[in-house]
Amino acid sequence: MAHGQIEYYEDVELGHEIGPLEEDISDESVVDFCEVTGATMPNRFTDAEIAQRVRLSGPIVPGIMSMAIMARLLTDWSPKGVLKHFDVVFRQPVPHTSVSISALVTDKREESGEYLVECDVYLSNEESGRMIGGRAIISLPSRG
């Protein structure tokens, strides 16, 4: 396993910190993402003028793109784990900028034969603080 990754449920402790994953979300990466989704462009995610028309200070990152990058932190951390649940609250729009994604293990339990780890996940940066907060549940293999 690569540094910082975990393989088994037994290796995870409460309070374990995951990340941070530092990500530079550029104009180009948002355009690439919008192309994959088939979204009509330009739109509020790619164009400053359109964004301002809907009272945003500039183009923002699509919520589903932020969520996908946040999920990446978890899949990077536990390549053999399976994400079972992921909910997020978009607290404020995320501009095209550098962000930091981190998570904290808040619970672990055996439930219906599955070994589950629960964590709080955040996307933030120094300027805006926590822009997205979420909660994830991951099923991990057990050493039995």
Binding site: H85, D87, V88, F90
Partner: peptide, 25 residues
């Protein structure tokens, strides 16, 4: 967004924003 969802004709507020999302694979 492949699913075309109709306007629910809510009589409240003008500004709408994406507030949250839950995914359960």
């Amino acid at each position: 967004r492949r699913v075309i969802i109709p306007d629910i004709r809510l009589n409240f507020g003008k500004a709408r924003f994406h507030a949250g999302q839950v995914v359960e694979p």
